[in-house]
């Protein structure tokens, strides 16, 4: 680990001031400390924001969640469990209990990919680590990699479960930077790799995630998260599905659908949603919507199965929510 300066922030303003546009913010450390130990991240300074207020408050009919709230606390919150079960389930499907106890909501958004070549700082090429270096994943082990929205520069996936649920829930990210505050939709917060896979979010230098807003969502009460992985627990998703649905007389009044493990960002399945809205809640309709969403999928040598797996997982998850089991 490269030496760094450490400072603990007392409040948001203090944090942004301490960071001075250059430091990295430290939450639970569950990803950043690992990346620093691997020398993939070498910040000169860390500003510890894990002690900032960690409150979950009612907000415009929804919830406002402090960025320092621990993953466990968010999944445990009664309002989340009752009104946003997809979020509680996504969090509880991620990592281990110990890590969920440490990891913050803000940090979860900034998790970096598990691509083996990204992690191999010494021995592999990676455009995400070193722009322009090349990508060893495209022709290497890419079983866990992206099938949607990838670029010739990068085929990595975003590893978060929580963010997939947040994408489905239209969450809003609250930011505070040297130039003031702003909000960004979670679906716009993460970026596709394009030419610059080293850029993963729209965060400006020095900008701090201060909170997440969950809008009121009547349909979120009927929501769930399905994660498919290589072992029963404590593994990253191969494919995951976050879904919420509002059903009336067998007709889909409204639906939210997002996929994990398939792209550089949590993948909001807007094409499928549009196809489903105001249509019948049937397995055939689910299948057609899934196929539409995955029509542009561009699998690699090692991850072709993800297209079919995602299709099946979408159909099964919507079926579970509507009672239309396959």
């Amino acid at each position: 680990m490269t030496p760094f300066r450490y400072a603990r922030a007392t409040d948001v303003t203090d944090a942004v001031r301490l960071a001075d546009g250059g430091a990295r913010y430290l939450g639970g450390g569950t990803n950043l400390v690992d990346l620093m130990r691997e020398t993939i991240e070498r910040p000169a300074a860390l500003v510890d924001v894990s002690g900032l207020p960690a409150t979950i408050e009612a907000h415009d009919g929804g919830l406002l969640i402090g960025a320092a709230v621990r993953n466990t606390a968010l999944a445990e919150h009664p309002a989340v469990r009752a009104r946003y079960p997809v979020l509680a389930r996504a969090i509880l499907a991620g990592a281990s209990a110990q890590i969920r106890n440490m990891a913050t909501v803000g940090g979860n958004l900034l998790q970096r990919t598990r691509c083996a070549y990204f992690y191999d700082e010494e021995g592999s090429r990676c455009n995400k680590r070193v722009p322009g270096q090349g990508c060893d994943a495209i022709d290497g082990f890419n079983r866990i990699h992206a099938i949607l929205g990838a670029s010739p520069a990068c085929v990595a996936t975003h590893p978060s479960d929580m963010c997939v649920a947040l994408a489905a829930l239209d969450a809003i990210v609250h930011l505070h930077g040297p130039d003031g505050t702003r909000t960004v939709a979670l679906t716009d917060f993460h970026t596709l790799p394009g030419e610059r896979p080293d850029i993963e979010t729209v965060l400006a230098p020095g900008e701090l995630i201060t909170a997440l807003a969950l809008p009121a969502s009547p349909l979120a009460a009927r929501s769930t998260y399905r994660k498919v992985r290589d072992r029963a627990s404590y593994a990253f998703a191969l494919v995951s599905v976050a879904a919420a649905i509002d059903l009336e007389d067998g007709i889909v009044r409204d639906v939210r659908l997002a996929l994990g493990g398939v792209a550089h960002k949590p993948w909001r399945a807007t094409k499928a949603e549009t196809a489903l809205r105001n249509g019948p809640a049937t397995e055939a309709a689910f299948r057609a919507a899934a196929e539409l969403e995955l029509a542009d999928a561009a699998p690699l040598a090692g991850n072709g199965f993800k297209v079919e797996l995602a299709r099946r997982a979408i159909v099964a998850t919507l079926g579970e929510l509507t009672g239309e089991t396959a």
């Binding site: 450490y6 450390g29 510890d48 894990s50 110990q98």
Partner: peptide, 14 residues
């Protein structure tokens, strides 16, 4: 509360 101490920087636990 249980945590993994390997990913915990000691300074954070003052």
């Amino acid at each position: 509360e249980r945590i993994v101490s390997c990913l915990a920087l000691a300074v954070q636990y003052e």
